[in-house]
């Protein structure tokens, strides 16, 4: 039964992933659609960050928020993305275990 669930989950995840490969091969989009699609990565980043970041520690939304603000600060200072990630992890670790 678990195997059937995994296969079903796989199909409904894979089909939406690969359909666009065939769509772009057969359809040419007008320019405004291309601009829409070019903006999707930035919109997706926004939607992926917020409000999800508040649930890093579900009962204390400020923990994720502070980690996020530190990440913004480090990214603005042009630190390498790995350091941005490590800085945010350290912040959350500090807030949840040391404080």
């Amino acid at each position: 039964m678990i195997l059937i669930i995994i296969l079903g989950m796989s199909l409904v995840t894979m089909i939406p992933r690969f359909m666009p490969a065939y769509i772009v091969d057969n359809v040419h989009f007008p320019d405004w659609v291309n601009r829409w699609l070019n903006a999707i990565p930035y919109a997706a980043l926004g939607a992926l960050i917020f409000p999800g970041i508040l649930t890093v520690k579900p009962d204390q939304p400020y923990v994720g928020l502070t980690g996020g603000l530190i990440a913004i600060l480090l990214a603005v200072l042009r630190l390498n993305i790995i350091l941005v990630v490590i800085g945010a992890i350290a912040t959350v670790f500090f807030l949840t275990t040391i404080l």
């Binding site: 890093v56 996020g68 480090l74 990214a75 941005v84 800085g87 992890i89």
Partner: peptide, 13 residues
Amino acid sequence: QSMGIALYAMFIG
């Protein structure tokens, strides 16, 4: 638990 922020931080970065 602290690692839970990692991917959000990557998105921000």
